[in-house]
Design a protein around this nucleic acid. Structure first.
Lengths: 376, 376
DNA sequence: CTGTTAGCGCATTCAA
DNA sequence: TTGAATGCGCTAACAG
């Protein structure tokens, strides 16, 4: 395998791109030939070592002229690390995901790493594939918003000794660091807001098939218990975090003889569906029905009235996850192969729980007669 | 292909994961030691060659027992290709981007490649960095939704001989394949719809600082010229594709003594801002003002009334871009080092222009008096 | 069909 | 400070 096409660079001229001809990427060998220095010296330059200003200059010039870029594959092969963080998201076509991704990307880049993003498309098999793929690429760490409900798919990462941080959804077996919001608490507050505004006929459209959904549900139920407010079965709509579920459930609620005066909407997709159903009906929000939703930022601007929402501190979540991961990475460097320390670390996985806050819009009406539930 | 879990006690040494201890990743050397076969045979197995069923089985067992995974860095170093497609997007926190990303990811994976996504965060410098980074990672191809208005930042890719496909926004110097919709034509149709519904006082909120914006503008203007309809300066709101611009512009339009009866909204962010402004005013859509927007899917469900929108065939765009790229990749294999062919190829960059379609909602009112522009 | 051998581009010992 | 040598894990000739 020899190099067919190659620029012999004229002494003074820049090694510019020539139309139609493809140059093989320059290697440190090329810049060795050009500078007369040895491979080791050049390598030292690339990795921030000390060398004579004279030589440094020579190398820099050669690099510029040859358009040299480090071959990360070769470097990675030697160092067995890639300075790449793998990110696996349950679903990339999703406002929540995208926003988190943006912040994660920022933090990761600031730390001098790069991000490699994989989309699991809500599919557990694909999720497991993604992990294996990323491991094959020798990522240094993993940030995962999981679709699976157990953490077996992460076994290969454990085996490879690569730190993992779970985002948004923690897994029941606490083997990994995780960052999320207090879904139960936030939901508790949200329903409490409805209650404090005088609502007594409160319905919940949520999910019992997703972890976050179950947590949010728990908060709602606890508040209602604490306030000794009944939640009749017909007011509790359980399904998935999907637009269809939101739409159908809201339709059913509106069709009741005694419809609720307020509804808790468990996530973004449910909000979308539910608002659609209200819009299609002859009811209006908040006149006929009050709404409080979970997740999201964009729609609060667009919807009329502006929705009252539980908003997650996405930037905070992303920052925390990144920091957690980098701390592990540091930790690994300092504690190289200490078995006992490893043992400890296994146990000490940290679960960070951030607070969410409620931003009030105009979608929750105040009902004057405290404790009453009559309309008007 | 199901294979029962079976305990084969290894003859040499357990290479399994031990709690708290990190096992080094197995290499083909390990599986060579285990099977007694040579490296070449194993490599052949890995790359789909023919071997004796007996040996195949041995290797498969060893792989499973050792949890072997190919080290892509080593493989890439040899083959000098990574089977990774780099994707650089102008802004990842964006519905358009995310949706395209989802489809791109699917296509790329179907083709046996993986995707490496980088976010330029609307910043040209970061965009250039992303390209260099991806090149360092030896991606086989690049799909780019650019923020820059010229293609210089792609020079390193050209130099490296790596195919590039531009998405959504083509660049004035046509050096690269590109896929986009016919922005001008779609805008023409959109404004034509307003016209055909009887509107004569039509305003445009758009962007002249982005390529897509300029193209859309051109379509609007052409239609109005063709219909001999005037566009007074006060009806033409030029700025950036931002929510602020949409919001401010719509406020100004509504404050006019003779406000337009219909407004063309140049992109998703502008729609958001404009709808917000309408909601905050005492006007209603479509009663007082008709709206037609460009881009987006989600909000048409949420908004009341449902917006009439120009919808881009996102899946089609993504598929086309991926196919274009893979075609180039194929092409490279078949035409290895033919200089003349390279020359030709350079010239023959294909610019795919896909049609967008209009989905009607309820945001455009029919105005009965054809040609009239009085309100009521 | 299988084994031997020689690098891919780089970092990293050790000498000098 | 610099240089020569070695190997990371894998593929790709080529020979058997």
């Amino acid at each position: 395998m020899y190099r067919a096409k190659r620029f012999t660079v004229p002494t003074f001229r820049e090694n510019d791109y020539i139309f139609g001809e493809v140059a093989l990427a320059a290697t440190i060998k090329d810049i060795k030939d050009r500078t007369g220095l040895s491979l080791a010296t050049i390598s030292k330059y690339l990795n921030g070592g000390n060398l004579l200003p004279e030589n440094r200059e020579k190398i820099e010039r050669a690099i510029k002229e040859l358009h040299y870029e480090v071959n990360e594959m070769a470097r990675g092969l030697v160092t067995s690390q890639s300075r790449v963080i793998g990110i696996v998201v349950f679903n990339i076509a999703n406002v929540f995901t995208c926003t988190v991704l943006r912040y994660l990307g920022q933090r990761i880049r600031e730390a001098g790493y790069a991000a490699m993003i994989c989309d699991s498309q809500d599919d557990e098999r694909m999720e497991a594939d993604n992990i294996r793929f990323l491991l094959g690429k020798k990522v240094d760490g993993l940030i995962v918003i999981p679709v699976a409900q157990t953490s077996e798919f992460l076994d290969p990462a454990v085996r490879a000794g690569i730190p993992v941080v779970l985002l948004d959804r923690s897994l029941p077996d606490r083997r990994f660091d995780s960052v999320k919001i207090n879904n139960a608490e936030a939901s508790y507050q949200a329903v409490d807001l409805l209650y404090s505004y005088g609502h007594r006929r409160i319905a919940v459209i949520g999910s019992d098939s997703e972890i976050t959904g179950r947590e949010r549900l728990e908060g709602c139920l606890r508040l209602l218990r604490d306030r000794r407010t009944e939640l009749p079965d017909r007011y509790l709509k359980l399904g998935r975090h999907s637009m269809e579920h939101g739409y159908e459930s809201m339709k059913e609620l509106l069709a009741l003889a005694d419809p609720p005066t307020a509804v808790f909407l468990g996530n973004f997709e449910i909000i979308l569906g539910a608002v659609m159903a209200v819009n299609e009906s002859d009811r209006s929000c908040p006149g006929d029905i009050s709404l409080i939703g979970f997740d999201d930022l964009i729609i609060s601007n667009l919807s009329n009235p502006r929705l009252t929402l539980v908003v997650q501190p996405l930037e905070g979540i992303a920052s925390a996850a990144a920091e957690l991961l980098f701390r592990r990475l540091e930790q690994e460097k300092t504690l190289p192969a200490d078995k006992d320390a490893d043992q400890d670390r296994e146990r000490q996985c940290v679960e960070l729980v951030l607070p969410a806050r409620i931003t009030e819009g105009d979608s929750v009406a105040r009902r004057i007669e405290e404790g009453g539930d009559r309309n008007d």
